[in-house]
Every structure is written in C-alpha cells, then in structure tokens.
Simulated assay, not measured.
Amino acid sequence: MPSIDVVVHLTYEECLGYYHGGFANVRTRSLDGRRVVFPADALRRVVRRDGVHGVFRLTFSPGGRFQRIQRLTRA
C-alpha cells in the first residue's frame, strides 16, 4: 500500500474544529515537501490533550483512498 510521511502541528482547539465537522480535510506537507490532503476524521485516532503534534505515516489504498494514520515521532 502506498504511504506518505507528514508533519502535523495542531493545537487542541484547532482539532476541535475538525472534530465537530467544521472541516472535512486536513492540509499539510510531507517530509519531502509535497502537499497532502487527508480526511479530518483521521485525527480522532491520534489527538491528545495538547492537540496533534509530530510526524505521521498516512497509508492509502492502491486507488488513493485514505486507510490509516500512524504516529512515527512526537514533536
């Protein structure tokens, strides 16, 4: 399955906007500089009290659909 590593830094308050459906997608950058968009509901799996901070691996199906988010490092 294709994957890409991204950096995400969102405060807890910013995550609430995603959590409550205010935003459908998260826009960020990969480690190699590409722009990446993935479903905001993926953040529910990795949000902590201080928000979402670190490097994450996003895994996609061969057809390009988001499947999984995995924390690689905490920043």
Score class of each variant (00 low, 15 high):
Met1Thr: 12
Pro2Ala: 09
Pro2Lys: 11
Ser3Ile: 01
Ser3Gly: 11
Asp5His: 05
Asp5Tyr: 00
Asp5Lys: 14
Val6Ala: 04
Val7Asp: 10
Leu10Asp: 02
Thr11Val: 10
Thr11Arg: 08
Thr11Lys: 10
Thr11His: 07
Tyr12Cys: 01
Glu13Phe: 11
Glu13Met: 08
Glu13Lys: 14
Glu14Met: 10
Cys15Asp: 05
Leu16Ile: 15
Leu16Asp: 14
Leu16Arg: 15
Gly17Cys: 09
Tyr18Ser: 06
Tyr18Pro: 01
Tyr19Asp: 13
Tyr19Met: 15
Tyr19Gln: 14
His20Phe: 15
His20Gln: 15
Ala24Ser: 14
Val26His: 00
Arg27Phe: 14
Arg27Gly: 10
Thr28Lys: 09
Arg29Phe: 13
Asp32Tyr: 05
Arg34Tyr: 08
Arg35Tyr: 11
Arg35Phe: 11
Val36Gly: 01
Val37Gly: 06
Phe38Gln: 02
Phe38Trp: 08
Phe38His: 05
Ala42Pro: 05
Leu43Pro: 00
Leu43Asp: 00
Arg44Val: 11
Arg44His: 14
Arg44Gln: 13
Arg44Met: 13
Arg45Glu: 14
Val47Lys: 02
Arg49Met: 09
Asp50Gly: 11
Asp50Arg: 14
Gly51Glu: 05
Gly51Lys: 03
Val52Ile: 09
His53Cys: 03
His53Met: 08
Gly54Ser: 09
Val55Ser: 02
Phe56Pro: 00
Phe56Val: 04
Arg57His: 09
Arg57Gln: 14
Arg57Val: 05
Leu58Asn: 01
Thr59Lys: 12
Phe60Pro: 00
Phe60His: 06
Ser61Met: 10
Ser61Trp: 10
Pro62Thr: 07
Pro62Cys: 03
Pro62Val: 08
Pro62His: 04
Pro62Gly: 04
Gly63Phe: 09
Gly64Gln: 07
Arg65Lys: 13
Arg65Cys: 01
Phe66Arg: 04
Arg68Phe: 04
Ile69Glu: 01
Ile69Arg: 03
Gln70Cys: 11
Gln70Val: 14
Arg71Gly: 03
Leu72Glu: 11
Leu72Cys: 01
Arg74Thr: 13
Arg74Cys: 07
